[in-house]
Write a protein that binds this DNA or RNA. Structure first.
Lengths: 231, 231
DNA sequence: TGGAAAACTTGACCTAAATCATTTGAAAAA
DNA sequence: TTTTTCAAATGATTTAGGTCAAGTTTTCCA
């Protein structure tokens, strides 16, 4: 949790969530906000806590996770420019999930008071936030569908295809975090993920460490049909 | 899909989502909205379709469900006063889920144009909707946690406890729909639900048809700890 | 650069849950 | 009431996935 710095309004517009905001609002946000670098694994917010800041990753990747007894699961991975825990911030209710960077990340934070004030006074800001909240809600609904409607083999195949597309569709990409987190994200154990990778490795993909190379895309597409309704 | 009628502003305020709105907004809504009675099983909206109305059940219960190939699952059950598919309506993007009444239901519908116009012009209306959207997002997140962190026995025990509380905590209630839907909602097969009920029936509950009687609440609470973080 | 510590893989085994087949029970229709 | 139909329960079996226990590989430092 090193260097605490501020940013200029233009940098803020680079974040998807703030894209459509007028200069004036961005100036306000840049004054109140702060940016910090956080190492991987450092817990930023805990489930059950009352929200104090609206957090938006600027670089890196944030894992949202939760515990129940001695079990733990990954709920989502938040990329730069998206928000997280927005529901808690808008409703002023406790977080339902904890958060920590999966890799070293820069995170922008905006105090609740600023967010609440702008919500009341600035319709465009309100619209920006509820649009983002809509994306969040739909993201969780998609996760639920992915989990209830697909087997773990299908989830892995879909994840590989989707991640390749995000990375430019070159048929080669590198997993950006450790495989145990990927397993948890996909709703399986690390052992099972290993075996499922091994099953695909026979024919459809090559995998060496974290580098994945898609050999027979059609085979993956046959295992899991990507659809806008889930992916 | 019988009788199409209108309502008065006061009736609208009875719906949780519209609770905090000024008379003026309710008048507008009541003019544009309509109310219809829909029989159980009649599909109201389909996943993939563009939204045309904001729907709010007034009586009964709406099931949100989705298909993937030949599989189908229940995603949520919407009680009177809550909204559904609000993300699609606010983002003007296709529904991710289909909807149908689980029992005969009265449903209020408001045209997209009215909703979009009020969103721009009426900050309180916007706030009412994003508050509801926040609840939706948190609801799906909770469902995801329930599914990933609990076994099916735990999910059933938690569901029984929670449903009893909703019904007044008397230790007796009636399942409001068929068990195959409950099974799908809880992420299991009907056969498995039957067996799981049978396991609880030995000691902890009595069940006859759709009537459930909790015998040893402490035993259920030991199986599944209800927590605001999930339930 | 050697060696400890993680991370990951593999194998053997077990358990939860799905599937298939049949029976029972209850509600609706004749 | 009797017959038909559908929902639910039960039994037998299979399968997906979890658990436990070694191995193996990679990463990270001292």
């Amino acid at each position: 949790m090193s260097g605490l710095l501020h940013f200029n309004p233009t940098e803020l517009r680079g974040l998807r969530i703030f894209q459509a905001l007028p200069e004036e609002t961005l100036v306000e946000l840049s004054k109140a906000g702060r940016l910090e670098s956080v190492p991987a694994g450092h817990v930023l917010t805990r489930e059950g806590e009352k929200p104090d800041f609206l957090h938006i990753p600027v670089t890196g990747m944030i894992e949202l996770f939760s515990r129940y007894g001695d079990r733990e699961t990954t709920l989502a991975m938040i990329s730069p420019g998206a928000s997280y825990s927005l529901g808690a911030v808008l409703l002023i209710e406790p977080y339902l999930e904890s958060s920590r960077p999966l890799v070293p990340s820069d995170i922008a934070s905006f105090p609740m008071e600023t967010v609440q004030r702008l919500l009341q006074t600035d319709p465009l800001f309100a619209k920006a936030l509820y649009t983002e909240l809509g994306r969040t809600a739909r993201g969780y609904l998609r996760s639920l569908k992915n989990l209830k409607l697909r087997t773990s083999l299908e989830r892995l195949a879909a994840w590989i295809l989707k991640t390749d597309i995000i990375n430019g569709g070159k048929g080669r990409f590198r997993i950006g975090f450790d495989k145990r987190t990927l397993a948890s994200h996909l709703g399986m154990t690390p052992e099972n993920l290993s075996r499922t990778f091994a099953a695909l490795k026979k024919q459809d993909i090559e995998i060496k460490g974290r580098d994945i190379h898609i050999i027979r895309r059609a085979a993956l597409e046959q295992i899991a049909q990507l659809t806008h309704m889930i992916d």
